[in-house]
């Protein structure tokens, strides 16, 4: 086995060995290498010292009022903008629903009034557009011709 210190992949094997993974084929080969390599033995010793220290460390217990102090701190760190708006928020909530309802009613009334306003109504002749008058006269002539054609044919044909 070549020296793990010179190879990134082999170095990871050495670190895994230090972390406790020792029941692998690589571990037995590594142990044979450690017998002859002082640098690797030193590295393993230092790594094992770190792991031992971590194993011995006990996390301190949280104090009884930890949660209360945490939330109090979060409350203190609310942004300045949020704090400025805070007094007005209840007012917005109270007014939002009635304002939205009034807006909907106003829109519906507007639509209804608009629909009523476009109903055909008699208008002064002066306001009519010439194109519209032409179309109306064309329709009148078309209907008259059609009526005349079907009347004239009536006496001469069978269904």
């Amino acid at each position: 086995m070549s020296c793990p210190i010179g190879s990134h992949e082999q170095l990871e094997l050495l670190q895994a060995y230090c972390a406790g993974e020792r029941n692998t084929p690589d571990a037995s080969a590594l142990e044979k290498h450690l017998e002859v390599c002082a640098a690797c033995r030193e590295l393993v010793a230092s790594q094992q010292a770190v792991w031992s220290a971590l194993d011995e460390w006990k996390a301190p217990a949280a104090s009884a009022d930890f949660d209360r102090r945490l939330f109090a701190r979060i409350e203190r760190e609310v942004s300045l903008w949020d704090r400025l708006l805070q007094p007005f928020r209840p007012l917005w909530v109270r007014l939002a629903v009635p304002l939205a309802a009034a807006g909907c009613v106003a829109i519906m009334v507007g639509i209804m009034l608009d629909r009523r306003s476009v109903q055909p109504q008699p208008v002064p002749a002066e306001l009519a557009q010439p194109e519209q008058i032409e179309h109306a006269l064309d329709d009148m002539q078309m209907l008259n011709d059609f009526n005349a054609a079907t009347r004239a044919d009536r006496a001469n044909a069978k269904m």
């Binding site: 476009v118 109504q121 208008v123 002749a125 306001l127």
Partner: peptide
């Protein structure tokens, strides 16, 4: 049937109503 612009979009224009009335009156 082609309609003049005022008939297609009555908003913003005089309310022309039924131009046939005008044709009949003419």
């Amino acid at each position: 049937h082609p309609q003049p612009p005022a008939a297609r979009n009555p908003k913003g224009a005089p309310k022309l109503g039924n131009p046939g009335n005008v044709a009949q009156r003419l």
